[in-house]
Design a protein around this nucleic acid. Structure first.
Lengths: 261, 261
DNA sequence: GTTTATGTTGCGTATGACGCAACATCGTTG
DNA sequence: CAACGATGTTGCGTCATACGCAACATAAAC
C-alpha cells in the first residue's frame, strides 16, 4: 500500500496481525529517532493516517510503552519497555557479565568499548563504557549503526541468515564518504571475510574520523546475540595498535560468551 | 469486567486499538510468568481463542519482542525489547547513577539493595545488588511484588493517583500470612502514612522471613519514577538497625533523584 | 486578523481480526 | 502399536473494528 521512500517499512505479511505490526512500527520509528516525534511526523514515516496513529499511540500510552514528553507533548518511548525488558536483560547477563568486561576492555585498550545487538535492520548500542583518554568517542545507548559501514553493523549482519544478508546487500547502500562500501558484491565479500576471520573492521567508512573493531558474542546455545566493539579515533588507529586491539576485542567477546547460565 | 482471578485482564476501552491491547496483554502475561508459556496457556489467561493468540504471537515473534524457547518451543519475552528499552534506560540513568548508588547502599547496609518501578499493577525489580553477607535475600530482575504487602509495592502504589490507589484497595487483597494487610481501610491508612513520612516498611507481610524498607526516587521534573529498596532477613531487622537503614534508604533515594538530566 | 500546522473525535465502509473446526504433530498410556 | 489427549497452525465465513475521511479544536506563525 505504500511507496514512500524514507519510511519504516510496513509489509502486510500473512498469518500476522496488521494493527499490531503498525504499533510495532511506531515503536521502531520512535526508537530510530533521537528526539520525540509528533503524531503527524509518525504518520508520515509509517504511511498511515493521522487518526490511526493517534489511536494506536493512545493504546501504547495506556500501557506506558510510549509516553508524551512533558514539555513538548511529543511522543517518545516509555518506561513500560524497561519493565518488560528487565527479565530479558537479566538473562542476557548484561549487568553482571557484559558490563564488567566492557569496563575492563575500555581500560586495557584505552578506548571506548560497547555492546551492540542487531535489530533486524541496524546495529543498536545497548551498553557503552567511554575510554579513559581525553579524546574519546561518545555514543549513547540506543544509537543505531547501519550494517554496511560500521564494525558492529558488519559483523552482526555477517552472522544473520543468508537471505537477510542478500536483502541488505541488494538494498540501498548509502554513501557517507569515499571509503563507504556501496558496491553489493564488495559488501558481500567484506561480510564473508569478516565472518570467517571472526571480527570486522571499520576504517572511517561512516565518519572518516572514526574507526572500530567488532566481534560477536554467543549465548549458552552458541547462538549469536550481540557484539563487542572498540571505537577508536582514526588518527590513533595505527598498524601496530590494530593487532593488539583486535586480540583484546576477540578475547573479550569470547569471555562474555561463556557457556552456562 | 474482571472476575477471573489469575489472568492479565482485558478491557476494551474506546479510542484505542483492540488488537494492540491484546498483544500488550500477551507481553504482560509473559512478563508476569517466571517461565515460558504455551499458546494454549496464554489463550487461557488472556481469554482469547488459540488461533488469535497464535497469530498475535507470530506478529510479535517477527519483531523479536517475544521468541520461542529453543528447547521447549514455548514463548518468552525476546531481545527486541532490550533494543527498544536501551534509550529509555539511558535516560533513566540506571547504569551510571542508580547502579553505583545501589552498590554503595548494599555495602553500607550490608543487605540486598534494589531499584523498582511500578507497572500499573505491581512493583517490578529493575536492578538489584546482593548484600555482602552470607545470608542474603536474592531476587531476580523482573520479579514482581504486589502493592499491598511489600515495601516497594506500598511506597510506589502510595504515589499513584488517587483513583489507582482506590481501585487497588477495593480489589482483592490476597492474604499470605497473619501479618498481611487485607483490610481496605487499613491499607489506605498504611499507604497514606507511608507517603507522608517518605518511606514504606514491610514487616514480613509477604514472606514472614523477609522485611524491607523502600523510598521513592524522582526524575528531573519531580515525577516519581521508581523506588530504592533494602531487603533484610526479618531476624536481623531489629529496632536499633531500623533507624540507620531507613536513613540510608531515604538518602540513597534522594541521591538518585538528582535534579538535572 | 488570516493562515498553517497539529491532534482529537464522530462516522461509514471495507478490511481484517476473531472464533470455529479440521488438520498436523507430538507425547503418553493402556 | 494403536488410541488417546494435548498442543499449535491453517483455511474459511462473518461480524466486529481499524482505517481513511472530514469536521472540529487548539495552538503557533506572520
Amino acid at each position: 500500500m505504500i511507496e514512500n521512500p524514507a519510511t519504516s517499512r510496513i509489509e502486510t505479511r500473512s498469518g500476522t496481525v496488521g494493527a499490531v505490526e503498525h504499533a510495532i512500527a511506531i515503536l521502531h520509528c520512535l526508537s530510530g529517532s533521537p528526539e520525540p516525534l509528533g503524531i503527524n511526523e509518525i504518520a508520515r514515516r509509517i504511511g498511515l493516517h493521522k487518526s490511526s496513529i493517534s489511536r494506536l499511540v493512545a493504546t501504547l500510552v495506556a500501557a506506558r510503552l510510549v509516553e508524551r514528553d512533558t514539555a513538548s507533548a511529543r511522543i517518545k518511548l516509555g518506561p513500560g519497555l524497561v519493565l518488560l525488558a528487565a527479565p530479558v536483560l537479566a538473562e542476557l547477563h548484561i549487568k553482571d557479565l557484559v558490563r564488567p568486561a566492557l569496563e575492563d576492555l575500555a581500560v586495557r585498550s584505552g578506548e571506548t568499548a560497547s555492546y551492540n545487538m542487531w535489530d533486524g535492520r541496524e546495529a543498536v548500542t545497548i551498553e557503552q563504557v567511554p575510554g579513559p583518554g581525553a579524546v574519546r568517542i561518545f555514543s549513547e545507548p540506543g544509537r543505531r549503526d547501519p550494517g554496511h559501514c560500521t564494525a558492529c553493523g558488519k559483523i552482526l549482519l555477517a552472522h544473520e541468515p543468508e537471505d537477510v544478508i542478500e536483502a541488505h546487500c541488494a538494498g540501498a547502500l548509502e554513501r557517507f564518504n569515499e571509503r563507504t562500501i556501496t558496491d553489493p558484491a564488495a559488501l558481500r565479500l567484506e561480510l564473508a571475510t569478516s565472518r570467517q576471520r571472526g571480527y570486522a573492521l571499520n576504517f572511517g567508512e561512516l565518519d572518516s574520523e572514526i574507526s572500530a573493531i567488532s566481534a560477536v558474542s554467543h549465548d549458552a546455545q552458541g547462538k549469536v546475540v550481540g557484539s563487542i566493539t572498540v571505537t577508536v579515533p582514526s588518527y590513533r588507529f595505527t598498524q601496530e595498535r590494530q593487532e593488539d586491539l583486535i586480540a583484546m576485542v576477540v578475547e573479550t567477546a569470547r569471555r562474555v560468551s561463556r557457556r552456562r547460565d
